[in-house]
Design a protein around this nucleic acid. Structure first.
Length: 340
DNA sequence: AAGCAGCGCAACCGCTATAGC
DNA sequence: GGCTATAGCGGTTGCGCTGCT
Protein backbone atom coordinates (compact mmCIF):
# COMPACT_ATOMS: atom_id res chain seq x y z
CA UNK A 1 0.00 0.00 0.00
CA UNK A 2 1.38 3.33 -0.97
CA UNK A 3 1.45 6.37 1.11
CA UNK A 4 -1.56 8.66 1.11
CA UNK A 5 -1.01 11.77 -0.97
CA UNK A 6 -0.60 15.01 0.94
CA UNK A 7 -3.45 16.57 -0.99
CA UNK A 8 -6.12 15.76 -3.52
CA UNK A 9 -4.13 15.96 -6.71
CA UNK A 10 -7.24 16.34 -8.82
CA UNK A 11 -8.41 19.46 -7.02
CA UNK A 12 -5.22 21.40 -6.64
CA UNK A 13 -4.00 24.03 -9.00
CA UNK A 14 -0.52 23.63 -10.40
CA UNK A 15 1.79 25.91 -12.26
CA UNK A 16 2.72 29.53 -11.77
CA UNK A 17 1.19 31.48 -8.91
CA UNK A 18 -1.06 34.39 -9.67
CA UNK A 19 -0.64 37.75 -7.93
CA UNK A 20 -3.97 37.12 -6.22
CA UNK A 21 -2.82 33.82 -4.80
CA UNK A 22 0.43 35.40 -3.67
CA UNK A 23 -1.44 38.20 -1.95
CA UNK A 24 -3.77 35.82 -0.15
CA UNK A 25 -0.97 33.61 1.08
CA UNK A 26 1.24 36.49 2.11
CA UNK A 27 -1.51 38.31 3.93
CA UNK A 28 -2.59 35.23 5.83
CA UNK A 29 0.88 34.19 6.92
CA UNK A 30 1.84 37.71 7.93
CA UNK A 31 -1.22 37.89 10.12
CA UNK A 32 -1.53 34.36 11.46
CA UNK A 33 1.75 32.67 10.71
CA UNK A 34 1.88 29.27 9.11
CA UNK A 35 0.25 27.68 12.12
CA UNK A 36 2.75 24.89 11.87
CA UNK A 37 0.60 23.10 9.36
CA UNK A 38 1.18 23.77 5.71
CA UNK A 39 -1.20 21.07 4.61
CA UNK A 40 -4.16 22.74 6.27
CA UNK A 41 -3.15 26.27 5.33
CA UNK A 42 -4.45 26.43 1.74
CA UNK A 43 -7.87 25.24 2.89
CA UNK A 44 -8.04 27.96 5.52
CA UNK A 45 -7.44 30.70 3.00
CA UNK A 46 -9.37 29.15 0.13
CA UNK A 47 -6.43 28.42 -2.10
CA UNK A 48 -6.61 25.44 -4.40
CA UNK A 49 -3.00 24.67 -3.84
CA UNK A 50 -1.06 21.85 -2.27
CA UNK A 51 0.39 22.69 1.14
CA UNK A 52 3.82 21.88 -0.10
CA UNK A 53 3.35 24.30 -2.94
CA UNK A 54 2.30 27.04 -0.49
CA UNK A 55 5.30 26.37 1.67
CA UNK A 56 7.64 26.56 -1.30
CA UNK A 57 6.07 29.74 -2.57
CA UNK A 58 6.37 31.40 0.81
CA UNK A 59 9.90 30.28 1.50
CA UNK A 60 11.25 31.06 -1.94
CA UNK A 61 9.38 34.22 -2.87
CA UNK A 62 6.95 35.72 -0.46
CA UNK A 63 8.73 35.81 2.83
CA UNK A 64 10.48 39.06 3.66
CA UNK A 65 14.06 39.89 2.73
CA UNK A 66 14.37 37.48 -0.14
CA UNK A 67 16.98 38.41 -2.70
CA UNK A 68 16.81 37.26 -6.29
CA UNK A 69 19.62 37.26 -8.80
CA UNK A 70 22.60 39.55 -8.68
CA UNK A 71 24.93 37.18 -6.92
CA UNK A 72 28.08 38.90 -5.79
CA UNK A 73 31.61 37.61 -6.25
CA UNK A 74 31.72 36.97 -2.54
CA UNK A 75 28.59 34.87 -2.73
CA UNK A 76 30.02 32.99 -5.71
CA UNK A 77 33.08 32.08 -3.74
CA UNK A 78 31.11 30.99 -0.72
CA UNK A 79 28.88 28.82 -2.84
CA UNK A 80 31.82 27.27 -4.67
CA UNK A 81 33.79 26.67 -1.54
CA UNK A 82 30.92 25.07 0.29
CA UNK A 83 29.85 23.04 -2.72
CA UNK A 84 33.30 21.56 -2.99
CA UNK A 85 33.41 20.86 0.71
CA UNK A 86 29.94 19.55 1.41
CA UNK A 87 28.37 18.98 -1.98
CA UNK A 88 24.82 19.80 -2.88
CA UNK A 89 23.58 20.58 0.60
CA UNK A 90 21.79 23.61 -0.74
CA UNK A 91 19.92 24.35 2.43
CA UNK A 92 23.16 24.51 4.40
CA UNK A 93 24.79 26.66 1.76
CA UNK A 94 21.74 28.91 1.67
CA UNK A 95 21.92 29.32 5.43
CA UNK A 96 25.27 31.06 4.95
CA UNK A 97 23.88 33.53 2.45
CA UNK A 98 21.26 35.77 4.03
CA UNK A 99 18.30 36.37 1.80
CA UNK A 100 19.13 33.53 -0.52
CA UNK A 101 17.04 30.40 -0.81
CA UNK A 102 18.28 26.92 -1.44
CA UNK A 103 16.28 26.80 -4.64
CA UNK A 104 17.83 30.01 -5.86
CA UNK A 105 21.34 28.84 -5.10
CA UNK A 106 20.70 25.47 -6.64
CA UNK A 107 19.45 27.09 -9.84
CA UNK A 108 22.31 29.55 -9.88
CA UNK A 109 24.83 26.80 -9.46
CA UNK A 110 23.32 24.53 -12.07
CA UNK A 111 22.81 27.18 -14.70
CA UNK A 112 25.71 29.54 -14.28
CA UNK A 113 28.32 29.00 -11.63
CA UNK A 114 29.05 25.43 -12.58
CA UNK A 115 29.64 26.41 -16.17
CA UNK A 116 31.75 29.32 -15.07
CA UNK A 117 34.07 27.05 -13.15
CA UNK A 118 34.05 23.91 -15.19
CA UNK A 119 33.57 25.46 -18.55
CA UNK A 120 31.32 24.07 -21.22
CA UNK A 121 32.54 20.99 -22.93
CA UNK A 122 30.86 18.83 -25.45
CA UNK A 123 30.75 15.33 -24.08
CA UNK A 124 32.49 12.81 -26.31
CA UNK A 125 29.94 10.52 -27.83
CA UNK A 126 31.80 7.29 -27.27
CA UNK A 127 32.89 7.76 -23.72
CA UNK A 128 33.06 4.46 -21.90
CA UNK A 129 34.68 2.62 -19.09
CA UNK A 130 37.98 0.91 -19.64
CA UNK A 131 37.41 -2.67 -20.54
CA UNK A 132 40.83 -4.06 -21.02
CA UNK A 133 43.67 -4.49 -18.59
CA UNK A 134 45.70 -2.03 -20.59
CA UNK A 135 42.96 0.56 -20.43
CA UNK A 136 42.58 -0.01 -16.72
CA UNK A 137 46.27 0.49 -16.27
CA UNK A 138 46.12 3.69 -18.21
CA UNK A 139 43.36 4.83 -15.96
CA UNK A 140 45.45 4.09 -12.91
CA UNK A 141 48.39 5.82 -14.53
CA UNK A 142 46.34 8.87 -15.19
CA UNK A 143 46.72 8.46 -18.92
CA UNK A 144 44.42 8.59 -21.86
CA UNK A 145 41.16 8.19 -20.05
CA UNK A 146 38.82 11.07 -19.83
CA UNK A 147 36.82 11.49 -16.66
CA UNK A 148 33.92 9.11 -16.91
CA UNK A 149 30.48 10.10 -15.93
CA UNK A 150 28.98 6.69 -15.63
CA UNK A 151 28.69 5.22 -12.20
CA UNK A 152 29.48 8.48 -10.51
CA UNK A 153 26.95 10.98 -9.33
CA UNK A 154 26.89 14.28 -11.14
CA UNK A 155 27.66 16.05 -7.93
CA UNK A 156 30.66 13.86 -7.19
CA UNK A 157 31.91 14.27 -10.70
CA UNK A 158 31.60 18.02 -10.60
CA UNK A 159 33.36 18.25 -7.30
CA UNK A 160 36.06 15.97 -8.57
CA UNK A 161 36.50 18.15 -11.63
CA UNK A 162 36.70 21.22 -9.47
CA UNK A 163 39.26 19.50 -7.29
CA UNK A 164 41.30 18.58 -10.30
CA UNK A 165 41.10 22.06 -11.64
CA UNK A 166 42.11 23.53 -8.33
CA UNK A 167 45.06 21.21 -7.98
CA UNK A 168 46.14 21.04 -11.55
CA UNK A 169 45.46 17.35 -11.83
CA UNK A 170 44.95 15.99 -15.31
CA UNK A 171 43.04 12.92 -14.33
CA UNK A 172 40.74 11.96 -11.48
CA UNK A 173 43.00 9.10 -10.55
CA UNK A 174 46.20 11.03 -10.87
CA UNK A 175 46.33 11.22 -7.11
CA UNK A 176 47.31 7.56 -7.17
CA UNK A 177 50.63 8.58 -8.63
CA UNK A 178 51.10 11.34 -6.13
CA UNK A 179 51.71 9.93 -2.66
CA UNK A 180 51.56 13.44 -1.33
CA UNK A 181 47.86 13.37 -1.99
CA UNK A 182 47.31 10.09 -0.21
CA UNK A 183 45.62 10.26 3.11
CA UNK A 184 47.21 8.07 5.69
CA UNK A 185 44.35 5.69 5.98
CA UNK A 186 44.19 5.13 2.29
CA UNK A 187 44.35 1.35 1.79
CA UNK A 188 47.48 1.79 -0.26
CA UNK A 189 49.19 3.64 2.51
CA UNK A 190 48.43 1.51 5.46
CA UNK A 191 46.46 1.96 8.55
CA UNK A 192 45.70 5.21 10.17
CA UNK A 193 46.83 5.18 13.78
CA UNK A 194 43.40 5.65 15.20
CA UNK A 195 44.56 5.52 18.77
CA UNK A 196 46.74 8.53 18.16
CA UNK A 197 44.11 10.59 16.53
CA UNK A 198 41.60 12.48 18.48
CA UNK A 199 38.77 11.26 16.34
CA UNK A 200 35.65 12.37 18.02
CA UNK A 201 32.11 13.17 17.43
CA UNK A 202 30.99 16.70 18.02
CA UNK A 203 27.21 16.96 18.11
CA UNK A 204 27.51 20.66 18.55
CA UNK A 205 30.98 21.34 17.43
CA UNK A 206 30.70 25.10 17.52
CA UNK A 207 29.72 24.97 21.14
CA UNK A 208 32.22 22.33 22.11
CA UNK A 209 35.34 23.76 20.60
CA UNK A 210 37.66 25.12 23.19
CA UNK A 211 38.95 28.65 22.80
CA UNK A 212 42.41 27.27 22.08
CA UNK A 213 40.97 25.38 19.16
CA UNK A 214 39.51 28.43 17.53
CA UNK A 215 41.23 30.30 14.79
CA UNK A 216 41.23 34.03 14.78
CA UNK A 217 40.28 35.41 11.42
CA UNK A 218 41.65 38.57 9.91
CA UNK A 219 38.39 40.34 10.54
CA UNK A 220 38.49 39.53 14.20
CA UNK A 221 35.95 36.76 14.22
CA UNK A 222 36.82 33.22 15.11
CA UNK A 223 36.15 29.81 13.76
CA UNK A 224 36.95 26.34 14.87
CA UNK A 225 39.93 25.28 12.84
CA UNK A 226 38.58 21.78 12.83
CA UNK A 227 35.93 23.22 10.59
CA UNK A 228 38.31 25.29 8.59
CA UNK A 229 40.20 22.12 7.91
CA UNK A 230 37.88 20.71 5.37
CA UNK A 231 39.10 17.87 3.30
CA UNK A 232 39.92 20.34 0.61
CA UNK A 233 42.28 22.10 2.89
CA UNK A 234 43.67 18.71 3.75
CA UNK A 235 44.50 17.98 0.20
CA UNK A 236 45.89 21.43 -0.21
CA UNK A 237 47.98 21.05 2.88
CA UNK A 238 49.01 17.52 2.04
CA UNK A 239 50.20 18.52 -1.36
CA UNK A 240 52.46 21.01 0.29
CA UNK A 241 53.59 19.00 3.23
CA UNK A 242 53.52 15.45 1.99
CA UNK A 243 50.80 14.77 4.51
CA UNK A 244 52.94 14.20 7.51
CA UNK A 245 49.88 14.35 9.67
CA UNK A 246 46.42 12.90 9.25
CA UNK A 247 43.96 15.08 7.42
CA UNK A 248 42.65 17.75 9.68
CA UNK A 249 39.07 16.92 8.87
CA UNK A 250 39.69 13.60 10.51
CA UNK A 251 41.67 14.86 13.43
CA UNK A 252 41.09 17.77 15.67
CA UNK A 253 44.58 19.04 15.37
CA UNK A 254 45.17 21.48 18.14
CA UNK A 255 48.86 21.75 17.53
CA UNK A 256 49.01 23.76 14.36
CA UNK A 257 45.81 25.58 13.73
CA UNK A 258 47.57 28.30 11.84
CA UNK A 259 48.79 25.83 9.26
CA UNK A 260 45.32 24.52 8.65
CA UNK A 261 43.82 27.95 8.38
CA UNK A 262 46.63 29.05 6.15
CA UNK A 263 45.93 26.25 3.75
CA UNK A 264 42.25 27.06 3.79
CA UNK A 265 43.03 30.64 2.93
CA UNK A 266 45.35 29.47 0.19
CA UNK A 267 42.56 27.35 -1.15
CA UNK A 268 40.25 30.31 -1.26
CA UNK A 269 42.85 32.24 -3.15
CA UNK A 270 43.06 29.41 -5.65
CA UNK A 271 39.32 29.33 -5.94
CA UNK A 272 39.16 33.03 -6.44
CA UNK A 273 41.83 32.76 -9.07
CA UNK A 274 39.92 30.01 -10.80
CA UNK A 275 36.64 31.87 -10.85
CA UNK A 276 37.78 35.39 -11.45
CA UNK A 277 41.28 34.98 -12.72
CA UNK A 278 42.75 36.91 -9.88
CA UNK A 279 44.12 36.32 -6.47
CA UNK A 280 42.49 37.88 -3.53
CA UNK A 281 42.40 36.52 -0.09
CA UNK A 282 39.06 35.82 1.32
CA UNK A 283 38.71 36.90 4.88
CA UNK A 284 34.95 36.75 4.81
CA UNK A 285 34.30 33.27 3.64
CA UNK A 286 35.36 31.49 6.75
CA UNK A 287 33.68 33.75 9.17
CA UNK A 288 32.40 31.94 12.16
CA UNK A 289 28.98 31.85 10.63
CA UNK A 290 29.99 29.70 7.71
CA UNK A 291 29.66 26.46 9.56
CA UNK A 292 27.42 27.74 12.24
CA UNK A 293 24.51 25.76 10.96
CA UNK A 294 26.56 22.66 10.46
CA UNK A 295 27.85 23.08 13.96
CA UNK A 296 24.37 22.89 15.30
CA UNK A 297 23.42 19.94 13.22
CA UNK A 298 23.50 16.72 15.04
CA UNK A 299 25.38 15.03 12.30
CA UNK A 300 28.17 17.51 12.28
CA UNK A 301 31.41 16.25 13.55
CA UNK A 302 34.95 15.45 12.80
CA UNK A 303 35.25 13.09 9.94
CA UNK A 304 36.71 9.68 10.29
CA UNK A 305 36.62 6.76 7.93
CA UNK A 306 33.62 4.45 8.10
CA UNK A 307 35.89 1.49 8.22
CA UNK A 308 39.60 1.66 8.62
CA UNK A 309 40.16 -1.33 6.44
CA UNK A 310 40.55 -3.69 9.34
CA UNK A 311 36.92 -4.24 9.99
CA UNK A 312 36.77 -1.67 12.71
CA UNK A 313 33.86 0.65 12.39
CA UNK A 314 34.63 4.15 13.42
CA UNK A 315 32.52 6.99 14.59
CA UNK A 316 30.92 8.38 11.52
CA UNK A 317 28.38 10.94 10.67
CA UNK A 318 26.16 10.65 7.69
CA UNK A 319 26.82 13.58 5.46
CA UNK A 320 30.45 13.87 6.34
CA UNK A 321 31.32 10.57 4.84
CA UNK A 322 29.11 11.02 1.88
CA UNK A 323 30.02 14.52 0.97
CA UNK A 324 33.67 15.05 1.68
CA UNK A 325 35.91 14.54 -1.25
CA UNK A 326 37.44 11.14 -0.87
CA UNK A 327 39.30 10.36 -4.07
CA UNK A 328 40.05 6.79 -3.05
CA UNK A 329 36.34 6.13 -3.01
CA UNK A 330 36.35 6.89 -6.69
CA UNK A 331 38.22 3.64 -7.17
CA UNK A 332 34.93 1.92 -6.67
CA UNK A 333 33.60 3.84 -9.60
CA UNK A 334 36.57 3.50 -11.87
CA UNK A 335 38.04 0.13 -11.08
CA UNK A 336 35.69 -2.81 -11.52
CA UNK A 337 35.77 -5.07 -8.53
CA UNK A 338 37.54 -2.63 -6.28
CA UNK A 339 35.90 -2.18 -2.94
CA UNK A 340 37.19 0.50 -0.64
C1' DA B 1 9.49 36.58 -39.91
C1' DA B 2 9.74 31.83 -38.62
C1' DG B 3 11.91 28.08 -36.60
C1' DC B 4 15.02 26.31 -33.51
C1' DA B 5 18.14 25.69 -29.63
C1' DG B 6 19.88 27.12 -25.40
C1' DC B 7 19.19 29.17 -21.11
C1' DG B 8 17.19 30.61 -16.68
C1' DC B 9 14.07 29.85 -13.33
C1' DA B 10 9.73 28.63 -10.94
C1' DA B 11 7.50 24.82 -9.53
C1' DC B 12 6.82 20.01 -8.91
C1' DC B 13 8.10 15.25 -7.49
C1' DG B 14 9.69 11.80 -4.66
C1' DC B 15 12.29 10.58 -0.95
C1' DT B 16 13.96 10.92 3.92
C1' DA B 17 13.75 12.80 8.51
C1' DT B 18 11.15 14.06 12.29
C1' DA B 19 7.34 14.85 15.39
C1' DG B 20 3.28 13.38 17.47
C1' DC B 21 0.10 9.94 18.78
C1' DG C 1 8.19 0.63 19.36
C1' DG C 2 5.26 1.24 15.44
C1' DC C 3 2.50 4.01 12.63
C1' DT C 4 1.06 8.19 10.38
C1' DA C 5 1.26 12.95 9.06
C1' DT C 6 4.02 16.61 8.01
C1' DA C 7 8.26 19.20 7.05
C1' DG C 8 12.25 19.59 4.61
C1' DC C 9 15.43 18.59 1.07
C1' DG C 10 17.60 17.70 -3.45
C1' DG C 11 16.74 16.35 -8.13
C1' DT C 12 14.08 17.08 -12.12
C1' DT C 13 10.79 19.06 -15.25
C1' DG C 14 8.49 22.32 -18.04
C1' DC C 15 7.71 26.80 -19.67
C1' DG C 16 8.84 31.32 -21.24
C1' DC C 17 12.37 34.24 -22.91
C1' DT C 18 16.26 35.31 -25.85
C1' DG C 19 19.41 34.99 -29.44
C1' DC C 20 20.91 32.84 -33.55
C1' DT C 21 20.24 31.05 -38.22
Amino acid sequence: MGRAPCCDKANVKKGPWSPDEDAKLKAYIEEHGTGGNWIALPHKIGLKRCGKSCRLRWLNYLRPNIKHGGFSEEEDKIICSLYISIGSRWSIIAAQLPGRTDNDIKNYWNTRLKKKLLGRRKEPRNRRFPSTAQESKEVADGMSYDAPSQGLSASALERMQLQMKLHGLQHPLAFLNNPALWPKFHPFCGRIPMEDTAVQQAPDTAAMVEPSERVALPNGSQISHSMVGTNLADIEASSLTGLTSPPSSMVLNTEQPEADFGSAVALQAELSSLIYGKIDYLPEIHQAGIFKEMGTMKESGVWCPPDNGFGEKSVLTSWDSASLFQPWNLLQDYVPGYDV
